[in-house]
């Protein structure tokens, strides 16, 4: 059992008791992670914050009934966050807003090179352009740093299928960003 999992279990038990120090420590530890996940899946910072807040509403509701076992609470939170993200992506498609927001001009970069912010914007735009499942695989493995087995379980696919999604996602990103040096 990892140190992170141990820490989570201690904090979740404290949250279940309503211990204010545990609550604050838990939110401080998990909010950046949940916000980052949702921001990269949705390509929209405001919606990502809404999703993160919604995840914690569910945590407050279910922490007391959580039974520590082989599954990690962190993985469970990822599942909840992803479902909320897919809910929003589905609603966008239903209203005909198929393209993710905050898309930016993907034209060639200025000769002077790219600033860090430009790179961030370009990378997010390229991520936004990926099929949802490829984006999900890349976000879980590269950014959220989940292990391949945990990520595959979370996505309900085999490790081989996960690796295929990752490879195709990286190839597409490389193509989108090929003008950047």
């Amino acid at each position: 059992m990892s140190l992170i999992q141990d820490t989570d279990e201690v904090l979740v038990a404290g949250v279940a008791r309503g211990d204010p120090a545990s609550v604050r420590a838990f939110v401080t530890a998990k909010l950046p992670r949940m916000t980052a996940l949702a921001a990269r899946m949705l390509g929209n910072a405001a919606e990502a914050e809404d999703v993160a807040q919604e995840v914690f509403v569910r945590v407050w509701k279910h922490a007391a009934s959580w039974r520590p076992g082989p599954a990690k609470f962190d993985t469970w939170m990822h599942r909840v966050a992803l479902n909320l993200c897919y809910d929003r992506l589905r609603k966008r498609r239903e209203i005909g807003m198929d393209v993710l927001p905050e898309r930016v001009d993907e034209g060639p970069a200025p000769d002077a090179g790219l600033l860090a912010r430009d790179v961030t914007v370009r990378v997010q735009a390229a991520l936004n352009g990926l099929p949802d499942r490829q984006r999900e695989a890349l976000v879980l493995v590269h950014y959220q740093e989940l292990g391949n087995i945990a990520a595959a379980n979370l996505m309900d696919v085999s490790v081989e299928a996960l690796e295929s999604l990752l490879s195709r996602g990286r190839r597409a990103l490389r193509e989108s960003l090929k003008d950047m040096k």
């Binding site: 939110v27 401080t28 909010l31 916000t35 921001a39 790179v119 961030t120 990378v123 990103l173 950047m180």
Partner: peptide
């Protein structure tokens, strides 16, 4: 490129609200 895309900054007001 992927590494240069840092995590979004945590919104302190959101943290307090949660």
């Amino acid at each position: 490129f992927l590494g240069a895309s840092g995590d979004p900054r945590t919104n302190d007001l959101l943290l307090e609200r949660i």
